[in-house]
């Protein structure tokens, strides 16, 4: 378990360094937006990892409610923290890009609104756990919030298709890539790097969660 997480962490660091180089140096500027295009190499992977984290919460929460095993709750809680973190990063990166390119930090666009809602749902998810008097009750209530909250992800993803939005639709759709090849490469490296970073953080956080639970159990016995 520990050697697996070290391996994943090492691979993540190497790929993040490569992603940084390719994103900032080796890839070309965009014809229309110039160097601002480089923000995409952080913004899109952040949103992608937020989706992964929410997906993890969804699956782990269902398993926890169904089977009741603590380990599923540890996974859900850890992924829930990462969901809030990476959704916030996606929003922040998007705003930093939006100001120079669109001319505004924020606007009431369907993609932006549904993403902000996702962040608030997971902020609430974490608060519910902390506020509950009984840890297990808090975990069950959070699991319900996590499962319902996860339904926001398909809404976010298809918001640019279902609604007429300011946010551009996806550039890479099966069989139709509206992005120059060096930019696709830079994006793919960063997507993989962020996915590995997510896996590493998740493994470490679950380990910490288990240690905490074991410590609490030992404290209750003595």
């Amino acid at each position: 378990m520990r050697s697996l997480s070290s391996l994943v962490g090492g691979a993540a660091v190497i790929l993040l360094a490569a992603g940084l180089y390719v994103g900032l140096v080796a890839s070309p500027p965009d014809a229309f937006q110039g160097d601002y295009v480089r923000i995409m190499y952080v913004h899109v992977p952040s949103a992608f990892v937020a989706y992964l984290a929410v997906g993890t919460v969804f699956v782990a929460s269902i398993l926890y409610l169904w089977r009741g095993r603590e380990v599923y709750d540890h996974v859900a809680h850890s992924a829930g923290e990462l969901a809030a973190l990476f959704t916030a990063l996606a929003l922040a990166g998007g705003m930093i890009w939006g100001k120079p390119v669109w001319g505004t930090w924020w606007t009431w666009d369907a993609r932006l609104v549904t993403t902000a809602i996702l962040f608030l749902i997971f902020a609430g998810y974490l608060l519910v756990r902390e506020l509950a008097e009984d840890r297990r009750r808090g975990a069950r209530l959070a699991a319900v919030i996590g499962i319902i909250g996860a339904l926001d992800v398909p809404i976010i993803h298809y918001s640019v298709v279902w609604f007429r939005t300011l946010h551009q639709p996806a550039s890479i759709v099966r069989g139709d890539i509206k992005m120059a090849p060096p930019m696709v490469t830079a994006l793919m490296i960063n997507l993989l790097a962020f996915a590995l970073l997510y896996l590493y953080l998740l493994l470490q956080r679950v380990r910490l969660e288990r240690l905490e639970a074991a410590g609490a159990a030992a404290g209750a016995e003595s």
Partner: peptide
């Protein structure tokens, strides 16, 4: 009162 520039989903280096 305000103008927002809409960016397309196309990305390419300058020709």
């Amino acid at each position: 009162r305000s103008i927002i520039v809409k960016h397309s989903e196309e990305y390419a280096p300058p020709t």
